[in-house]
């Protein structure tokens, strides 16, 4: 009984006590080792069941926490206190995969450089850029600590400023601004009144485009703001299109998408979708 109590105490949300933390880490390692061993030793059928079981248990947590009746103020059930540690755990697992991404990048570009493939110097730039940002970014971070270490020399701050404010930020802004050019040419090319519906769409588009800018407001500025027909001022008409025509359509789409997401979640949670991620459906 004492043993059971001490085991149970491991699973209570508690401040980060050293021993408890070590025990949790140990338990996690053992669980992973057991799962790995099972995965290697079980046959295809057993493996499928194992994956289905783990998927089900993992998916159960958030659903159960949301639907289980709550008591008290703030309203809680027996799982509520676990939301934070479980979310943190998910974030940490996600963070590990960043390493995989960087490994993939280094693999592709490393091969380009090693085999002197066409454009290999671009790959070299990639390594230089990644290294520079990593080194000077970390350096900058250490300078920003409330008590910076005296041995950290401050001169790389200037380099970081050049890399971040001088290169990264303007490159990002410039890329986003490319969209203006793309949308102008795409709108010109794609917008043709081939049907009556396309005509309606174009009318709505013109109203919204003009309603969004002062030029549109200026075009219909002769209509007094408090007149009965002020509705026909372009900025009012534009907002009306957005609020009364666009909004119900958006709601409809969100409705359908949400149900689709629910169905997809159920299929994955209950491992119904075998054909795609697991083995072929018989």
């Amino acid at each position: 009984m004492a043993l059971l109590r001490s085991v149970w105490s491991l699973f209570q949300p508690a401040p980060n006590r050293g021993v408890l933390l070590a025990a949790i880490v140990l338990a996690a390692i053992i669980s992973v080792a057991i799962l790995y061993a099972l995965h290697r030793t079980l046959g295809p059928r057993g493996r499928r069941w194992l994956i289905a079981l783990v998927t089900f248990l993992a998916g159960l947590f958030f659903g159960l926490e949301f639907f289980w009746p709550v008591k008290g103020d703030p309203a809680k059930n027996f799982l509520t206190d676990w939301i934070e540690p479980v979310s943190t755990m998910i974030a940490i697992i996600g963070a590990f995969t960043v390493g995989l991404g960087i490994y993939s990048l280094c693999q592709v570009h490393g091969r380009n450089v090693a085999q002197r493939r066409p454009g290999w110097h671009n790959s070299l730039t990639f390594f230089a850029a990644m290294l520079a940002m990593l080194v000077f970014g970390l350096w900058e971070h250490y300078l920003h600590l409330p008590q910076p270490l005296p041995e950290v020399v401050p001169w790389p701050k200037g380099i970081y400023e050049i890399l971040f404010n001088g290169l990264f930020a303007p490159l990002q802004a410039a890329t986003f601004s490319l969209l203006a050019f793309y949308i102008a040419s795409a709108a010109y090319r794609a917008f043709r009144i081939r049907t009556a519906e396309a005509g309606l769409m174009m009318a709505a588009a013109f109203i919204v485009m003009l309603g969004q800018v002062p030029f549109g407001a200026w075009l219909t500025s002769s209509i007094p703001v408090d007149a009965g027909w002020a509705f026909f001022r372009l900025e009012v008409l534009g907002e009306w299109v957005m609020r009364w025509l666009n909004m119900p359509a958006q709601r409809g789409i969100v409705f359908g998408v949400a149900i689709g997401a629910l169905a997809m979640s159920l299929r994955i949670w209950l491992s119904l979708e075998r054909g795609t991620f697991f083995t072929e459906q018989s």
Binding site: I183, A184, A187, I193, M202, L210, V213
Partner: peptide
């Protein structure tokens, strides 16, 4: 920015109209 956007929108509308005139 709104001054710029005003005339950019007018240009896009003009381009759409030109394209459609050609088409029709």
């Amino acid at each position: 920015i709104m001054n710029v956007q005003s005339w950019a929108h007018v240009l896009i509308i003009a381009l759409i109209i030109v394209g459609n005139l050609g088409y029709l």
